[in-house]
Design a protein around this nucleic acid. Structure first.
Lengths: 358, 358
DNA sequence: GCCTCAAATGTAAGCGTTTACATTTTTCAT
DNA sequence: ATGAAAAATGTAAACGCTTACATTTGAGGC
């Protein structure tokens, strides 16, 4: 059975010196070794159905023997496709994006695509820069977080025909493919629970809202619930701060230093909430007896903090996974995938209770 | 002063139809617009010092006018350099790698390089696959975690002349560029503290050691300290498990179910330790009065868990940053950077105390 | 066997850069 | 002014692949 393998002659017999050269083998080397043209080798690799079983076998043997692996730059140049997908996230330091990105990457991998990563540090101008940088690098498509960005940048992407998917937000009114949930609605539902518990004076610790529509929407969700309960909007005391436990701690102290302090503090994310929890403990305030605190995201932190945090569960991994699937579908040119709304369910745990009677 | 700008004629006057074509402009377009050769344009972009101020200005104006941005695939093909650096980490789900990667990426960005990410899920064969995949993609250099891998893969990388940097470990005896700390020594120091506190029966919860030299080294560190204190090696009860809070929880219960249970449980990382902490609370065991628990990594989790965790601080961000700097230096062809040992200091907090007297 | 048509393969022109090398222009000592 | 050397620019050949188109091969109906 091996006999006809011996008929394959690898390399040119008249050019013995190019055996074992240190440059990696090229398509042409494989073609020569298999005794076919480069076009056929290319076909074997990319469209095997266009090729006889016999040649396929022979070519694959040569590929194997030579240890050939295609040069992606050349492939990209010729096919005008890089098979690289870019993701621009605020920061990987934030567990929610790290988790989502991990799922995104796993899914891309299954489809032979590679993940190109850049981060914007929650800065709008930096994000624009990164979008330009990754498209310049040839990213075939882009994963972006939230809707908020300059219309010019959307125009730029459209003109370049770069498919884009917005994640961590869902708004069917917007003309972009997206996967996520309704931040505003989710926070409104949580705020309703807070109001139902009897709280009338609320505080809010939020990430900076300037370039962050998710944060903004969550604050608006609280306002919606308050309005529905006929509470004056200015009853809501808001502190805007950066993303860290320490910031949450500081912000909590700031909210609690005045007279007539809020009886419930709603935080824009779990990290801030855990900071608030820490500050409360440090100030000798019991949660939820003396003050209620809520979070958002349901990261691991939320389940092991001193009191299990009442928060909103966000399906980070599913978002990352669907994002990859949708983008792959767009690139394959098939039918356009639909935007997907995922549920963001309340996690009622231990840090919300009725306010102390005065 | 503007007058001579008017002398620049953009585009060929005899080819009016190629204005506003949808394909992005190429080097040749810029060259034509500026009235120079493509070589000159290329020089303006890559080696401006080789070009007259006047032409530079003219070319840059054309670049600007046309909105030209170089095609990276073509550039990579011609220059045999992709300016992409690959990182293969176990998982971004793990905060320590997410943090390190974030710093790594920030530093790369400063140097005009892009980050290519893949994850191995702590599986050796998957890691090999990813190494091959990223090199095939043309990664100019690679960031790898820990030393443990098949010698064949090191040979492969050497043959391909792909610079590699090992992070999260430091072993001057190994022939690879690295940045990290001595896992074994750090854990040994922590174990010494545990023994000094009077513990004689230790337990250990570790991540799977098969393909994870960091985990293995940490366990060995405990053994070292025990040996130095003349304790029989089999006094150490070890449970090996996967990386998650829940696993830490389970493992703790397992260790504590026998008679003659350990008085101190040393965990291979903070996540497992937090799980142990949770299990202890659930079982009605007070920490550290009834049992001591230690972690490793000093992630945020460790400072906000019910009891502040005694652990080892690992400088994740500095590792990521130095890794990028070192790799950039290697690629620039200058002097070879040195491996860097970073300190891993003990964080003595609230979960370690002397054992209860029996 | 012959012809037609489809399947398989080959040929060669790109893809958009970089970079030796060749050529032209400038500088400057004479 | 002149010539040599240096600086600036141009020419054109890679880089390694894909793919439209041309050519060859083979199958099947007659």
């Amino acid at each position: 059975m091996d006999s006809h393998a011996a008929h394959i002659h690898y390399g040119h017999m008249h050019e013995p010196q190019d055996i074992n050269t240190d440059a990696p083998p090229t398509l042409a080397d494989v073609a020569a070794a298999a005794g076919v043209s480069t076009a056929t080798v290319s076909r074997c690799l990319n469209n095997p159905e266009l090729v006889t079983e016999k040649t396929l076998e022979r070519v694959l043997a040569a590929v194997d023997h030579l240890g050939y692996s295609p040069n992606f730059s050349a492939r990209a140049l010729a096919s005008r496709r890089t098979n690289m997908i870019g993701a621009i996230i605020p920061t990987m330091d934030n567990a929610i994006f790290a988790r989502g990105l991990q799922a995104f990457q796993e899914e891309l991998q299954k489809n032979g695509c590679t993940l190109l990563v850049a981060s914007s540090s929650y800065k709008q101008d930096l994000e624009e820069e990164q979008i330009k940088a990754l498209t310049a690098r040839g990213a075939d498509a882009l994963l972006l977080i939230g809707y908020h960005r300059d219309p010019g940048i959307y125009a730029f992407l459209e003109k370049r025909r770069i498919p884009v998917l917005v994640a961590w937000a869902y708004d069917p009114a917007k003309p972009y493919l997206c996967v996520g949930f309704r931040n505003r609605d989710a926070m409104k539902r949580l705020a309703e629970k807070v109001l139902e518990a009897g709280h009338r004076k609320l505080g809010c610790i939020t990430a900076e809202t300037a370039a962050n529509d998710r944060a903004r929407e969550r604050v608006d969700g609280i306002r919606d619930a308050m309005a529905a309960a006929d509470l004056a909007p200015d009853t809501l005391e808001i502190v805007e701060t950066t993303y860290s436990i320490e910031s949450g701690d500081q912000a909590f102290r700031q909210l609690m230093q005045d007279t007539d302090t809020p009886t419930a503090i709603m935080c824009g994310n779990d990290v801030l909430a855990v900071g608030a929890l820490r500050a409360a403990a440090d100030m000798g305030l019991r949660v939820p007896e003396d003050v209620s605190i809520t979070g958002f995201d349901n990261i691991e932190l939320a389940s092991v903090s001193p009191q299990p945090l009442t928060t909103v569960h966000v399906p980070h991994r599913r978002m990352g996974q669907y994002a990859a699937q949708a983008l792959m579908k767009v690139l394959s040119g098939g039918d356009v995938p639909a935007s997907l709304e995922l549920p963001a369910d309340l996690c009622m745990r231990a840090t919300l209770a009725p306010p102390r009677k005065p």
